[in-house]
Nucleic acid binder design. Sequence first.
DNA 1: CGCCGAGTTTTGTCCTAGACAAAAAGCACT
DNA 2: AGTGCTTTTTGTCTAGGACAAAACTCGGCG
Lengths: 301, 301
Amino acid sequence: MNTPSFSIAAVERDTGLSKDVLRMWERRYGFPVPERDANGERAYPAEQVERLRLIKRLMDQGHRPGKLLALPADALPGLAPKHAPPTRTQAATADTEGLEEMLRLIKQHDANGYMQALQQRLARQGLQRFVQDIVAPLTQRVGEAWEEGRFEVFEEHLFTELTKRVLRQAIAVLPLGTGKPRVLLTSVPDEQHILGLLMVEALFALEGAQCIPLGTQMPLTEINRATLAHGADIVTLSFSAAYPSRQIPEVLQQLRQLLPPTVELWIGGAGVMRTTPPSGVRQFFSLEQGVQSLVEWQRMA
Amino acid sequence: MNTPSFSIAAVERDTGLSKDVLRMWERRYGFPVPERDANGERAYPAEQVERLRLIKRLMDQGHRPGKLLALPADALPGLAPKHAPPTRTQAATADTEGLEEMLRLIKQHDANGYMQALQQRLARQGLQRFVQDIVAPLTQRVGEAWEEGRFEVFEEHLFTELTKRVLRQAIAVLPLGTGKPRVLLTSVPDEQHILGLLMVEALFALEGAQCIPLGTQMPLTEINRATLAHGADIVTLSFSAAYPSRQIPEVLQQLRQLLPPTVELWIGGAGVMRTTPPSGVRQFFSLEQGVQSLVEWQRMA
DNA sequence: CGCCGAGTTTTGTCCTAGACAAAAAGCACT
DNA sequence: AGTGCTTTTTGTCTAGGACAAAACTCGGCG
């Protein structure tokens, strides 16, 4: 046979759909219907995995599983995003043509060209405006492009990796923060996106805050330990659009319960737009809002 | 009640033990024995989660679950690592005292001091020796320290995050690679450690290779697409010691089957030390070995 | 004394199938 | 167009059973 087949664990890895869900769908909707290997275990042909991947992407855009699974395979690629297109509030000030040009560089896999374009803009505009006018809108556009199927996963990865580099580099050369609020920046397990946190870190560091970057995927109990060990005043988490939003309230409540009450818990990112946080948790819808809160905090102290 | 309790999903998140395993252990060994909430679902008290976390760490050191679960809770912390202490082959040339000093900085949570120490050494020694004599041994020591319980998870995260920055920064200022082998660097899903890949990238870039860094956690089918899109000659993966070694052969075989036969597949990292790779996959036990192979490749072409 | 092969135990993952709660959608009624 | 209620949809949890692969143990042989 020429088409390799995937175990249920492999499909979970590649599509992000849990084993439970895969089995449930098979039972309920009659798709996917994997073959069985010699041990009676599911063996998914590559073609079904591909279709599952597509279904997952459409679900992330607001489509419902029941509808998608009932649809024939060839009807899927034509579907448009379902939830309202994201607001483009910042478009007025942004250099739209320049942004599109940079997206084009990524799309052409021109890593060097993209890096140069970034560096150039950083040098010209300074870090603050670079973050707000370039990186943030770019990230948003890449997210949209991915949702619409115009970007491959690996193109998004390349974009993320290169952009992270420039941001980290820019942060590294800032004068070391020694100022008032000590801010711990991280994300919870299963949330691996860090670009948003880096943007926040850049802006916070510019305001003189002392940032403690812990990377992604910290277990909640470890976030608490780190908070105590570093004497942090604020814990900032980021949730991307890809994070399962149903889990957010539980996670936040749990963490809020673990942390000392005097420590503030701030959250932001595309993933928190559609949820209301539990009490004692502060939610941000934009970078500007976060910076404003930081400045307020500093004035209060 | 003052001790928050964890759902089975939360325990999976925080300990890394799968739901299946948690239920299995309960059935077989009588631990953990969670309480039940109103719906009859498991609710793990914080104390049991803590014990599970400890058990997991000891398992990663080579202890067997059956033994650990039979042991009383207070006997666990005293256990020593089981598998032979890693070889310290490079110790001869390394500046042992300096390394220990840097570890101490991390242990004291002195992020700024650690960054300065790193930058200083990078400037003094140059990138190549910095990677080989400082970053690689440091990473190894942090791994050992973590295994022995001398490092907390969040300390390891801080170390990783700060070290990544310096490395990325150093790579960013290298002359842009345009040379012969195009090398794609990434890791498979569930493998989030990237420090090893960054070290490889630094050394490869110094040899004039053109590196395409895609970050971590690429689905296998996406690795293949990226390879084709970028026209890569070599795909390099890294497996950390934390990666479940039982899954490595399957993953490699799958990927080898997906990739065009002309594309080489190179793997390295602490996770591959104890496994034999399938045919068509090249395994590296040290950074030097990787660089040597790259140079050979260049001579052949 | 060390090494190798066979047998035994340990251990994780997969399987089926049912139950239920939370979220989303539909709908009636201001 | 909004608001509150009912129904449908959907994911996660539960239970125990089966099995294969890995790890350990032990006997025999060089």
